[in-house]
């Protein structure tokens, strides 16, 4: 019996979550909201990314980054979090690995904090509400 897989797609492409070598990009998601963590996870997984870790505050995020390093390609970093906010966590991660690729996740109205994060070394930012297109665009622009 013929199945669709017998007919290779004419637009076969590497999913955006994979490097040209075919391995999945490894992402650490740092956010105190389970809902947002899940949203980001679903968007990234559906495009072939590998979410290798999650953390619920900045302190845990920094620890997880050090634990995973060097097997982590990108961090999504929420700004408002308990214990340690995202900007401080970003600072600690850059201190540890100056080439870290961190994308800030922010609600509207935190322009000053986003600016500060970009000066510290965040590679990009995404303003909530998140949607698939926005997240993938920003994340991919940082990785490729």
């Amino acid at each position: 019996m013929k199945t669709t897989s017998d007919f290779p797609s004419i637009n076969e492409r590497t999913p955006d979550g994979q490097s040209n070598g075919g391995s999945a990009f490894k992402v650490l998601v740092v956010d105190d909201s389970m809902f947002v963590t899940k949203q980001i996870g679903q968007i990234l997984s559906s495009e072939g990314f590998n979410v290798v870790g999650t953390a619920a505050d900045g302190l845990e995020g920094v620890e997880k980054y050090k634990e995973l390093y060097p097997n982590v390609d990108l961090v999504t970093m929420d700004i408002t979090m308990p214990r340690m906010d995202g900007v401080s966590a970003l600072e600690k991660i850059i201190e540890f690995d100056k080439d870290a690729k961190v994308v800030m996740i922010s609600a509207l109205g935190k322009q000053d904090l986003v600016k500060k994060a970009l000066l510290i070394g965040a590679k990009n930012y995404i303003i909530k509400p998140l949607d698939r297109k926005k997240v993938l665009e920003r994340v991919i622009s940082v990785l490729k």
């Binding site: 956010d31 105190d32 909201s33 809902f35 947002v36 929420d78 408002t80 979090m81 609600a107 909530k128």
Partner: peptide, 8 residues
């Protein structure tokens, strides 16, 4: 607010 971990 709870869902986003933000004070809206």
């Amino acid at each position: 607010s709870t869902m986003n971990g933000e004070k809206l």
